[in-house]
């Protein structure tokens, strides 16, 4: 999907929030926003859906727990049972720590990898086109100029009204 984008840079998160909220109210398609830190309320202002990462985290944990239980039971009681300290072959209380640790490990790793995959975060040879100073002290709103409803003048005035420091155009 190709569209012309309008990058409006703000010096402050309140301005960004207000501009975003108003743009959304006006029905302007909000492509994205770029901020140096997470801005609370921005996801609501942009109308983003809740992340599904918790489900991935839960699944990862459940798999870890299951795998660890299976592994310990199979190795200790099925494949080569040995009498150790007079304990039963399936010493479940003793298996608990490894079960817990493996659960946490897989849950954490799957969460992190899901984040990286979903957000397309991966080692890159060339740096991405980040709006100037968006990772430092600028709050940038990217509006998509996609259909006829986009009134360029109205949008520009909206952005200026909210204190845009600069406005640039660009492609996705």
């Amino acid at each position: 999907m190709s569209a012309r984008l309008l990058y409006a840079s703000f010096g402050d998160e309140t301005a960004l929030l207000a501009a975003t909220a108003e743009a959304r109210r006006l029905g302007v398609a909000i492509h994205d926003a770029y901020t140096p830190h997470p801005v609370h309320g921005l996801d609501e202002a942009m109308g983003l859906r809740r992340s599904r990462l918790p489900w991935i985290c839960f699944t990862g944990g459940a798999v870890g727990l299951g795998l660890a239980s299976l592994m310990q039971w199979w190795m200790s009681a099925v494949d080569w049972p040995l009498v150790i300290g007079g304990k039963p072959f399936g010493s479940w209380p003793a298996f608990a720590p490894v079960m817990f640790e493996t659960m946490v490990l897989l849950a954490g790793l799957s969460t992190a990898f899901a984040l990286f995959l979903r957000s397309r975060l991966r080692p890159r040879i060339s740096a991405p086109a980040v709006p100037p100073r968006a990772t430092q002290d600028r709050y940038v709103l990217a509006l998509a100029e996609r259909d006829g409803s986009f009134d360029r003048r109205e949008v520009m005035s909206l952005l200026h009204r909210h204190g845009a420091l600069s406005i640039q155009e660009g492609d996705t």
Binding site: D32, T35, P54, A114, P128, T135, V140
Partner: peptide
Amino acid sequence: LGWDGSARTWARYEVA
């Protein structure tokens, strides 16, 4: 990792 400060990423990032 090609971080660009996108609000969508931030949202996921905070959850993560």
